[in-house]
Amino acid sequence: MKPLPLVLIAGLALLPAAALAGDATSAGAQQAIAAAEAKISAAAAMQNQWFATMAAFRAAKAAERKGDYAAAEAAAAEAGKLADLSIAQARRQKALWQSEAVR
């Protein structure tokens, strides 16, 4: 039996990723956007929204409107991660600000 050419092996290896990208749906994108929106609301409630979060969120919504659901999911995930970071920052600062205070 002849060994498979390297190019063919590489192509076969990429198949699952391609299949996953093709699996992105409107419902999935909307779910990712809703999840990011919840985190963004939590960050806003803590008075600590980042511009980068909102930029990623706007990109997610724009991609979703264009029908690029994979890009929408990716951008929404990024927005969610940034919102998580801002929430963590606000929580840390609840105690840490006192260490910066002049006394």
């Binding site: 980042w50 511009f51 006192q98 910066e100």
Partner: peptide, 22 residues
């Protein structure tokens, strides 16, 4: 107001005090 002044915020992680005190 004091807490706001000394709390770091934003992606650059700066407080008002970072620039105007420290």
């Amino acid at each position: 107001g004091k807490e706001y002044f000394y709390s770091r915020r934003g992606q650059l992680n700066f407080s008002c005090a970072s620039c105007h005190v420290q």
